[in-house]
Write a protein that binds this DNA or RNA. Structure first.
Lengths: 221, 221
DNA sequence: TCAACCCTTACGGGAAACCGTAAGATGCTA
DNA sequence: TAGCATCTTACGGTTTCCCGTAAGGGTTGA
């Protein structure tokens, strides 16, 4: 089993339980911190001292309490930690249920496990730690049934820029201007219109409001 | 200190920590349940056996896991329990941060304490239990900010119907038809337009896409 | 080099949404 | 009941959006 584990979780109540779960798994050396910056410091120091951590368990959202922090959320923390110690295992523990966000964690940030804070989260966390220790990835069963991909659409960054601008209240006819500002390749109004039309058609939508709602739901916005 | 305490909290991780917090306060007889209906049963039986509970600690939101329940959230639970045993003390433990909701809990449902799930929630919970035992109400300090109401907008059910229909892809000009179907009072197209215009103005938005995004963000959709 | 192709952009007609104005309906008060 | 206020609806002109067509611009391959 893992020897050294670092827990980054701002909620005291959650933090306590994670500690207890790890104890029940026979993990003695568990350090728990309430801020992302502290987590980075401990990872750094352990690495420097030749006694690195085996596993990082982190939340996604850390609440701002007016203590200025360099790193303010779990995604940034995972990135920073992997830069310091690329071989560290990571499990994310969060209430996030949107499949887009969770899938992105595995795909883009190469996390090893995801446990959604829900009914049997302690049990699933225990299973996650065991799975990850066996070099397997783990996703708690109640999280993210991304199977509902019916007639899904692979959103490009171009798509996301457009939808993001719409959600910010930019008028369609002004979108080309904003795209040029960011040096995004197709910037013509017709291209924007064509792309929106395609997205709506694939997803069987009729209005842009649906696109915005859909992207919010799956966590792309 | 309280003798008998009942904890209703579906998240295992949170439940474990609440138990531990109570133990640290010297409370031995703490029963913990994961469903509202179970809570009601235990309150009833204890009352019947002449050994009632002194305190109920409950979450607000209980996730549906396909186990059919009579009572599905903390507000309903508090109401039901007070009907069985009016003198029981109640502390709500929840992530809810909207001051309106919290204030309503104290005013309408006469709860004795509120602890927001946040950084020092375990510590605040401990303080809450002690305060409530001393017949004082308690509200955790971080749940206070009712100041962020800047240019907020109180959404009516009418507003929500309109935005919901938009998010479902209904064309604006067809919304009157849907409103009539549901016997919603103003159903004219002009009324819909006026209302949308007002909402956009109050929130300083220019497009309906922003309204949809906003409602998704604050959990109204 | 030319030609075929794909991607991007420009244009124009028609539909929908936006917005101001005013007429009608409802409700309250004197 | 008359008068006033408020809410609802109807109607138009303007803007924006939608969508099909076609022209420009770059790449590839014979």
């Amino acid at each position: 089993m893992f020897k050294k584990v670092l827990i980054a979780e701002d909620h005291e109540i959650a933090n306590i339980s994670v500690q207890k779960t790890l104890q029940d798994l026979g993990i003695r050396d568990a350090k728990y911190v309430y801020y992302c910056d502290h987590a980075v410091t401990w990872i750094k120091n352990a690495q420097r001292d030749g006694d690195p951590y085996d596993l990082l368990i982190t939340d996604l959202i850390f609440e701002d309490d007016h203590t200025p922090q360099q790193i303010s959320n779990g995604v940034q923390l995972v990135q920073a930690v992997k830069q310091i110690q690329p071989d560290i295992k990571t499990i994310v523990l969060s209430a996030e249920s949107r499949s887009g966000v969770v899938d992105d964690l595995f795909k883009t940030h190469a996390i090893d496990g995801y446990v959604r804070k829900a009914r049997r989260d302690a049990q699933y966390l225990s299973e996650a730690v065991k799975s990850v220790y066996a070099n397997k990835t783990y996703k708690s069963p109640d999280s993210a049934d991304s199977s509902r991909v019916k007639n899904s659409h692979e959103f490009t960054t171009f798509d996301m820029h457009i939808i993001s601008l719409l959600a910010q209240g930019v008028q369609q006819k002004n979108i080309p201007y904003y795209l040029q500002q960011k040096n995004i390749k197709p910037s013509g109004l017709s291209s924007v219109e064509k792309r929106l039309n395609l997205m709506r058609e694939v997803l069987d939508f009729s209005k842009n409001e649906q696109l915005v709602a859909y992207c919010k739901d799956i966590g792309l916005l």
